[in-house]
Amino acid sequence: MKLLLVIARKEFLQAIRNKGVMVAAFIFAIWFPVFTTLGVLTGISGDPGTALGGHLANLSVVLAIFMGYLFSSDAFFREKKDGTIMTFLCAPVSLRQIWEGKVIGVSMAAYGMTILSVLITVAVAILLSPVGITLPLLLLVHVFVILPIYAAASAGVIGAAQLYLGMRENQFLGMGFIFLFIFMVFGLQVLISPEGGITILTEVFFGLMGIVLLLVGRRWAGRLSKERIVRTIA
């Protein structure tokens, strides 16, 4: 456990000290929620609190996944490019522990940026809404339970993929993720409309899907071998 926390701490500090990644995360955390929230507020016909709750349920999950991807790319792929992953592979630690430590550190940074984006969204909505907004209490469950799962699941799956794939394949992985991200934005909007708000059913759905993704990433990481990773670096 102590070794796991050491790896997690290293990855978290490295993530928040990377100026390029942090700038990109800040821009996305501000730009995306502001413009989508403006669109939701313009088309509201019912209770603004219900609409904003449904909007945040969709938006925050997508953001958590994107932030997990953004920070995990620096933690996993960068270390393969510059060769520093070899230091981990030579250490007396299993690949599963390396993966788990990195995922914990990366998901902490990703979750923090997602929370910032949610706060910005709420602030924009309150400032621009002509009427008072009362957010549903179920949103607290979403923010403190569901979002950490998705930040960790995204970092875990992307991290395992980047360790498994070769250098050229990793470049296509990034482009593929962008298309997946766009699909998720529109797909979740169709599945859960802002007017319907956030419900227990949607939270159960989000929770189950997030846990499945997290387990997929963990199982994939468990099938990795140090020899496989070394071969993909060449």
Score class of each variant (00 low, 15 high):
residue 204 V to E: 05
residue 49 G to T: 05
residue 95 L to M: 10
residue 133 I to C: 10
residue 48 P to Q: 02
residue 174 G to A: 07
residue 26 F to R: 10
residue 150 Y to L: 01
residue 109 A to Q: 01
residue 116 L to N: 00
residue 20 G to M: 06
residue 5 L to E: 00
residue 75 A to C: 08
residue 132 G to E: 07
residue 60 S to Y: 09
residue 103 V to Q: 03
residue 48 P to E: 03
residue 129 S to W: 02
residue 60 S to P: 09
residue 91 A to G: 09
residue 121 T to G: 15
residue 58 N to A: 03
residue 100 E to T: 14
residue 221 A to V: 05
residue 50 T to F: 02
residue 234 A to T: 15
residue 72 S to P: 09
residue 51 A to E: 09
residue 146 I to L: 11
residue 228 R to V: 11
residue 106 V to K: 00
residue 230 V to K: 13
residue 20 G to P: 03
residue 206 F to S: 02
residue 225 S to E: 04
residue 142 H to G: 09
residue 199 T to H: 00
residue 149 I to V: 06
residue 165 L to P: 13
residue 60 S to F: 10
residue 72 S to Q: 06
residue 57 A to E: 01
residue 124 V to N: 01
residue 67 M to G: 02
residue 8 A to L: 00
residue 110 A to E: 09
residue 208 L to Y: 12
residue 69 Y to M: 11
residue 218 R to V: 03
residue 6 V to W: 11
residue 148 P to Q: 10
residue 28 F to L: 13
residue 45 S to F: 14
residue 233 I to K: 03
residue 58 N to Y: 07
residue 62 V to E: 15
residue 218 R to G: 07
residue 154 S to W: 04
residue 179 F to P: 11
residue 123 A to Q: 04
residue 204 V to F: 13
residue 135 L to G: 08
residue 179 F to S: 13
residue 77 F to H: 11
residue 179 F to Y: 11
residue 233 I to F: 00
residue 72 S to E: 03
residue 75 A to H: 02
residue 41 L to K: 06
residue 114 T to L: 05
residue 89 L to N: 07
residue 98 I to T: 14
residue 133 I to L: 09
residue 83 G to W: 05
residue 73 S to F: 12
residue 92 P to Y: 13
residue 106 V to Y: 08
residue 137 L to G: 14
residue 11 E to L: 11
residue 89 L to C: 04
residue 53 G to Q: 06
residue 79 E to Q: 13
residue 128 L to N: 15
residue 147 L to K: 00
residue 101 G to I: 06
residue 103 V to Y: 02
residue 105 G to E: 07
residue 130 P to A: 01
residue 31 W to T: 15
residue 165 L to F: 09
residue 150 Y to W: 09
residue 174 G to P: 00
residue 180 L to V: 12
residue 109 A to N: 07
residue 208 L to A: 11
residue 79 E to W: 03
residue 88 F to Y: 00
residue 184 M to S: 09
residue 189 Q to K: 15
residue 15 A to S: 10
residue 41 L to G: 03
residue 68 G to Q: 11
residue 194 P to C: 05
residue 91 A to Q: 07
residue 225 S to G: 01
residue 118 V to D: 10
residue 44 I to D: 00
residue 9 R to P: 01
